[in-house]
Design a protein around this nucleic acid. Sequence first.
RNA 1: GGGCGCUUAGCUCAGCCUGGUUGGAGCGCCUGCCUUACAAGCAGGAGGUCGCUGGUUCGAGUCCAGCAGCGCCCACCA
Length: 918
Amino acid sequence: MAEQLSSRFDPKAIEGTIYQAWKDAGYFHVPASRVLEGGADPFVIVIPPPNVTAVLHAGHGLNNTIQDVLIRWRRMQGRASEWLPGTDHAGIATQNVVERLLAMEGVTRDDLGRDAFVDRVWEYVRETGGTILEQLEAIGCSCDWERTAFTLDPGLSRAVREVFVRLYDKGLIYRGEYIINWCPRCHTALSNEEAEGEEVVGRLYHLRYPFPEPSWGAAEAASHAGAEAIARLADGRWYLTVSTTRPETMLGDTGVAVNPRDERYAPLVGADVELPLTGRTIPVVADPYVDADFGTGMVKVTPAHDPNDFEIAKRADLPLLDIMTEAASLNENAPEAFRGMDRFEARDAVLVALETEGLLAGSDAHTHSVPHCYRCHTVVEPRLSEQWFVKTKPLAEPALQASRDGTVTFAPVRWKKVYEHWLENIRDWCISRQLWWGHRIPVWYCGDCSEVIAATEDPDVCRKCGGGELEQDPDVLDTWFSSQLWPFSTFGWPDDTDDLKAFYPGHVLSTAPEILFFWVARMIMIGYEVMGETPFRDVYLHGTVRDSQGRKMSKSLGNGIDPLEVVDRFGADALRFTLISAAGVGTDLYLDPDDLEASFSPGRNFANKLWNAGRFTLTSVGDAPVRPLPEVEADLELEDRWILARLDRATVSVSRDLERFRLHEVADTLYHFFWGDFADWYLELVKSRVQSEDDASREAARSTLVTVFDSICRLLHPLTPFVTEELWGRLPWPEGGERPEALIVASWPTPQPGRADADAEAQMAALQELITQVRSLRKEYGVGEGQEVSVVLSGAPAGFDDTVQTQGAALRRLARVGSAQSGAVPEHGVGAHAVLGNGTEVFLPLEGVIDVEREVVRLREEVQKLENHVADVDRRLANQAFVERAPAEVVERERDKARTAREQLAKLGEKLHHLAGR
RNA sequence: GGGCGCUUAGCUCAGCCUGGUUGGAGCGCCUGCCUUACAAGCAGGAGGUCGCUGGUUCGAGUCCAGCAGCGCCCACCA
């Protein structure tokens, strides 16, 4: 069998078949009955549903690999592991994509009309949507495909309506006219989270508004110290100065505000001022929001285009004047000269007009944060409009409590504070969107009696007046309104289904920190509100995938990595292993999109090494029956006991790190155990034994090989599922032992009692060091592999002599040592020296092979090193405080060190003396 | 303006919570090897004032404070 395997791992040859085998075996699907009747312990992850139109990028690759590692591990542990996949309809994003397609045909959504447009989007989604889910299969994700969900599915849509109506009935959803973030390109409202602040270097313009004659108050105000904003110009009139970064909004000003405690401007409160370019007159009002120390201490008030101004206007009873259209061009409320202009065009025009009239007092460079639409990047315009909101404070309470009391945990833990801070300062959530693609708001208005009806089922008649034409609210809900329900809507809520009983609440939620507020926090809030408990316990927030220059990978920058290309070139295992080993908890990953070879060769090489070690193990073990390990217990040799002890150590460490989401540590531990311990040492040590005539030795080696390699496959399976499945399936099963299943899902390794073997580990460590030292000395003295050497050991601790004698074959194989004798190092012999960590002095007689001068030089270095070491230790021991206060074992260790080092020093010194004298 | 994180080898990062052998890994680099599992490999090696300053301690990469540089998040200063 094994001979047929290629010496290079070819992922393409196995991935498809193996994935299909997993699916066919029903490996991924968990029926609720396994939990409810079978008593299995559930483990549930719901996928962060990618946009239905998305294609897989590096971030998805990382996130879904993480989830798959956790799911596969728990499944092997015997948990009923449910990983629910699906997609999000992604309101704005998807609508934008389709609108762009239509634009290429020269058609707008308005040309089509609402119904036809929505049909068109559905058509698009049916054709191309869900591609990303198929792509997840390519990287080995073991999702329960039988439960694939979409946020616009009928069931999930029913959940949306149900939640809306419940919140509405509780007064937690309300409608009102407020300043919201408006995207003039998408023509819709945005939530605060969807308006992303971006640093922009702009200008702060200072505008002058003239006081009408007679300007009582102005002169008085101007007499106050620091009242620079009030000035009398050459024309003899009094003016005040206000500042703004958006000069065009002055056309919508309905007042000027000052702080009520600001004595400078007290005489002006109640006065009127002329608003240039408009012919209107607006009042000066007092409002505590104004910061007297900032700028001139006077603020122009534009209630319809600034959230703060809106609040001031409400308090001061100023009128609201909306001067812009949906597209952010100036409307009929603006002076005729500016009507129809785009806001930025109008900005320039207003500046020119003011300048002409001598009313522009200048400008300063000004860096500030300007909100942009998170989908299309257009500058958001604050706009007065009637929208639906969720009252969030009551919902935030339990979600906050859950974090504070540890019901919900975050990894890395620093996100806990970020999450809590957001909830503590949460603002109401604007949920209505002026889009067509999404869940239409389940509210109807009666044309006759103005009754507002929120209902889960479309009503036929007005429940109040019985007649009247009913019209449904035209808006749809924010996409995140439906995705927040994901952990229960996907399992059948609002019905009381078995799935829900079995799989809610879930366990781990793994995602990118960017959507901590958008999605994670809201799921927790609504989970408590609707289900009465948290949707998951552990939130794992992974790092960002960046390019070699540290830039976040993105479509627009064109610096992304296509995981499918990586799979194609290096295999899914290589992709997964590379991503997991590179991703510390919450740390960013750096990959070079221009050099996939450099980025993914660690994973590719690892998979290949695994493949070859597997090939060798299979050939070594051969087809003959293998005896179960307990039967050969008495015949186990040093390296067998050692590798089994190392395996246990690795098993314990890996299981612990998985619990703590320290996946990169898992990868690191297994890398070193498999490559370092197993491949580099164990396989080399048993090479001669597996072909040996000595039945006991051979059988012990074969059993150990099978046992250890079986565990290696299992431990690595969550990380590199394909190659481990393939190799494991070919591994012979020990006689009499029942092969649990055809696939590796069988079980997760657990530490075996009696396998810890400190003695074997110590002996092996010394043996490894001896071999390494001999190799090193050979290299240094130029003694080639072709030349066999003998070794003299002196001062070896108990047991090590025996080890060396029984490991003659190993020494010969790995270090080309012909004979190893214990005894005094020849006093006058020429040779190479080294001292092992356990105090053993190693001497390679090389009389006639090396020249004496070189040996003297080397000895001098050795002596120097030892002297430094002794001085170091002595200094510490001479420190009274150290001896008195350090733990006894630490002090004892120091004394031992001093003693051994001195003995060695004496021997080497003597040797040096003799040689130097020659 | 608030909050958080990072700074250890040429590069990317572990190690710090819980202070104590001689500070690690991968990649890259140097040297020698096509040794019948693997050249996507094997063996050997070079490379570090652990950002700076101070403090606590017998002892600090590890704990504390300050500083500097970089990065992220939040925020209505016009």
